[in-house]
Simulated scan of single mutants.
Amino acid sequence: MVAQDFKVDLNKALVFQVGHLGEAYQEWVHQPIVSQEGPRFFENEFWEFLTRTVWWAVPTIWLPVVCYFVSKSVRMGHTFPEIAVMVLFGILVWTLLEYTLHRFLFHIETKSYWGNTIHYLLHGCHHKHPMDGLRLVFPPTATAILCFPFYNMVKLMASPSVAPAMFGGGLLGYVMYDVTHYYLHHGQPSSEVPKKLKRYHLNHHFRIQDKGFGITSSLWDRVFGTLPQTKAAKKSR
C-alpha cells in the first residue's frame, strides 16, 4: 500500500502508524479531533505511561528547582532587586525560546516516516488531539533532559553568580508557559485578558495554524510579524 492510501486506525497505538502517511501527514495532523479522551500512543505500557502527565506535576516538580537556583545567586551576594532583574530576564529569554521552538521546530513540515513520527511525538499529537488533558504539558523526564543544554546556554550568557538566577527565571518562565497552556485549553476565564489569550491560542489551533506561535503572550508574534489577523480585521478589508 502506498503512503497516500494509508489510513490511520484511531483504535490502535498511533505513534508508529503516522509515519506511514508520508506527504499526507501534514494535512491529517492539522485536522483536529476535539475530544477530552486522548489516543493511545504506544502498545508498551511503560512508554505509554511516560507520555501522560497531569498538569499540576509541572509546578510541583519544577518550582522547588527554580527556588534552588535563584537561592544560589542570593548566596553569592546579589541583592533582591538584582535577583528580580535576573529572573525577569530569564523569563524573557524563555518567551523567545518558547516562540522559536514553536515556530521553527514544532511546526516544521515533515513527510518521511521518522520525520512524521518524531513530529507527532513533539507537537503533532497536540494539534490532532488539542483537548487531550494528559498530553498538554511536557513530560518531566523530557524537561529534565532539556534543562542541561538550556543551563549551558545561560552560562555562556552570564557570569557564574548571575547564571543560576537567570536559569531559575527561564525555568519559571517554562512553568508559567505549561500551566498557562493547560489553562487556555481547559480553563474558563472570566476576565478580559485571559479571555483574549485563550481566543488567540485557540485561533492558532482551529483557524490559522501557521501564525500565533506565542503561548504566554503575543509579544514575539508582534515583533516577528506572525500575529494573525482577527476576523473583524479581515472583514473590513
Score class of each variant (00 low, 15 high):
Arg52Ser: 13
Ser190Asp: 09
His123Phe: 01
Asp178Pro: 09
Pro194Lys: 05
Phe213Val: 02
His204Trp: 06
Ile33Val: 13
Val29Asp: 05
Gly225Lys: 00
Pro39Ala: 08
Leu146Asn: 05
Val154Ile: 15
Trp55Tyr: 13
Met86Ala: 09
Ile215Leu: 11
Leu88Met: 12
Phe104Ile: 01
His78Glu: 02
Leu21Trp: 12
Val137Pro: 01
Leu50Ser: 07
Thr95Asn: 13
Pro149Ser: 08
His123Leu: 00
Gly212Tyr: 07
His30Gln: 02
Cys67Phe: 14
Glu43Cys: 02
Pro228Ser: 06
Tyr113Trp: 15
Gly187Phe: 03
Ser191Gly: 01
Glu109Phe: 03
Phe150Cys: 07
Val15Asn: 09
Val223Glu: 02
Tyr177Asn: 14
Trp94Pro: 03
Asp132Pro: 11
Val34Tyr: 01
Leu146Cys: 10
Phe150Gly: 00
Trp47Thr: 00
His129Ser: 05
Leu184Pro: 02
Trp114Pro: 06
His201Thr: 03
Pro164His: 11
Gln209Gly: 04
Thr53Cys: 12
Thr216His: 10
Lys195Cys: 10
Pro189Gln: 06
Lys234Ala: 01
Phe104Lys: 07
Glu82Asp: 12
Phe42Gln: 03
Tyr182Val: 04
Pro194Phe: 06
Asp178Lys: 09
Val179Phe: 14
Lys155Thr: 10
Val8Thr: 09
Glu82Asn: 10
Gly169Lys: 00
Val15Tyr: 06
Arg199Glu: 15
His205Cys: 03
Val74Pro: 11
